[in-house]
Structures are given as structure tokens and as C-alpha cells.
């Protein structure tokens, strides 16, 4: 059992390495010493969360340390060694590692991380119906990701951090999220390959890490190799995201 788990994690780690990544630190069972990254921008590509993921249930949780740019074993879920977890259906709920995060793996633990999503309705209208909360065009132009990301140069004043998850946008709930879940394929009537598809949106998340450092993060895809226009033929469970972390403790996110 343990070896199987370790094997999976090893695969996940390997998948996490992308060209422009800093090399991930060695696996440290205790994790406390750590191997922090430098202030900078990192892109995590095809991170394997759960390749058997379907819409039929929760995927295997995936714990990530932004400060060390690495996957953290599930056995350390009740430690401060990770900052965010990809949890739930299609790993779509991004929870901070926070002991108060009800319903999350970090609940009751020592975690102090928090999370927020920046919602800029003036920007959103470029791709999104701000009254009915759904994309107005698919695929959403890729250029909007860079635009949204580069606009965030600091932690916005008054941004409301939460300990709950940031996940699917207004999916039978009232919360802004990073992805639109087209449950019934209603954006593409009559095409069954388009039901149960998650479309990432150009929304920037701000994470306050467990150790109190700020990072901005943008989800790019939950499908293998980030297809521009995903459907049911694409494999979910491969998370691609970009993040920039400020290690000096300031709110400055103007990070190349």
C-alpha cells in the first residue's frame, strides 16, 4: 500500500517538472527543513493528480507546497508542509492548508494558509457573462491568461481571504471560482462530449502560504496537455498552473 502510494507520488513529482521549473527539492519525509524556492514564477505542467478521475466522484487529493514547488505526500496532510490542496470532483476545489477549512484535509491541523480569488468584472466582460455567470465564448482567448496574470502586481488592498476552497464558479452556489463547470453541456447543446467539462477561466488566485508569504496563481487546465477546447475525450486529472511567489514577505507580486 505504502509503496504503491509512494510510486504514485513519484510519478506526480516527475510530471510536475517542466522546462521552466526550478528543479523540485528532494523528497524529505519530515519536510520541516524544507528547500524553499527563490522569488519567481514557476509553471507546473501536467501535474498528475488522479488520472482515473471522472465526474463520478472525488479525485485523489493532491497536496502542493508553493514555497518548495513540490508535491507533498498525503501522509503529511496534517502538517504545515503544504500550502494548497487540489481536492474533490476533478480536483477542482483549491483549498488552502488551514485548520479551520471545514470539509478539507487540513481541517483540524496546524495550517495557516489562506486563499482569495480576484474578480475584476471590467476585465471579465471580455469572456464572461457577469449576470449569468458563464463564459460568453469558448475557447476563451489564451492571451487573457497572461493579461489577467500580469495585471496583478500586488496583493489588492481589501482583498478578502478565506479558509474555504476556491473552485467551480457559481456551480449551484454563490461563489466566484477559477473554472466554469458545464454540467449538462448547455454551452454546446446536443453534443454529449461537451457535458461535464471544466473550463478554466483567466482568474488569478492569491495564496497566503502557511508561512505567511504571498503568491499569485492561475489555473491553466485540468486536462492532459492543456487542450484549448476540452471535451470528454480529454483526460482530466492533469493540472497545469502557473504561480509567482514573493519570498521576502511583502505583498509585491510584480515578479518576472
Amino acid at each position: 500500500m505504502n509503496t504503491k502510494l509512494l510510486g504514485l507520488l513519484a510519478i506526480a513529482l516527475l510530471a510536475a517538472c517542466s522546462k521552466d521549473d526550478a528543479p523540485p527539492g528532494p523528497e524529505e519525509p519530515g519536510g520541516s527543513a524544507g528547500n524553499p524556492v527563490k522569488t519567481g514564477t514557476y509553471r507546473v505542467v501536467n501535474l498528475v493528480a488522479d488520472t482515473n478521475a471522472t465526474s463520478a466522484g472525488d479525485a485523489v487529493s493532491l497536496y502542493y507546497s508553493l514555497e518548495e514547488n513540490r508535491v507533498v505526500p498525503a501522509s503529511q496532510r496534517q502538517t504545515g508542509n503544504w500550502d494548497i490542496v487540489f481536492y474533490g470532483i476533478y480536483n477542482s476545489s483549491v483549498y488552502p492548508n488551514n485548520g479551520n477549512a471545514v470539509g478539507s484535509p487540513g481541517f483540524g491541523g496546524p495550517g495557516k494558509a489562506e486563499i482569495a480569488v480576484i474578480v475584476d468584472r471590467k476585465f471579465d466582460v471580455a469572456y464572461y457573462d457577469t449576470t449569468h455567470f458563464k463564459p460568453t465564448q469558448l475557447p476563451i482567448p489564451a492571451a487573457l491568461w497572461s493579461e489577467a496574470y500580469n495585471k496583478v502586481t500586488t496583493v489588492p488592498a481589501g482583498l478578502r481571504f478565506v479558509t474555504r476552497d476556491i473552485g467551480l464558479d457559481h456551480f449551484l452556489g454563490g461563489f466566484d471560482g477559477w473554472g466554469y463547470y458545464d454540467f449538462y453541456g448547455s454551452l454546446f447543446p446536443g453534443n454529449p462530449q461537451k457535458a461535464h467539462v471544466v473550463y478554466t477561466m483567466p482568474r488569478v488566485l492569491i495564496v497566503k502560504t502557511h508561512k505567511g508569504r504571498y503568491a499569485k496563481l492561475i489555473m491553466e487546465s485540468i486536462y492532459k496537455d492543456s487542450p484549448a477546447n476540452p471535451d470528454r475525450t480529454h483526460k482530466p486529472g492533469y493540472i497545469t498552473f502557473r504561480y509567482s511567489i514573493q519570498m521576502d514577505g511583502s505583498t509585491n507580486l510584480n515578479i518576472p
Binding site: D58, G88, V102, G103, R164, F171, L172, G173, F175
Partner: peptide, 11 residues
């Protein structure tokens, strides 16, 4: 409002 509870307690 409240709807689906994804596990976060808000539904």
C-alpha cells in the same frame, strides 16, 4: 444562497 455542498459546508 445555498445549493450543492462540495464538502466545504456551504450547501
Amino acid at each position: 444562497g445555498v445549493g450543492w455542498d462540495s464538502g466545504n459546508g456551504y450547501g
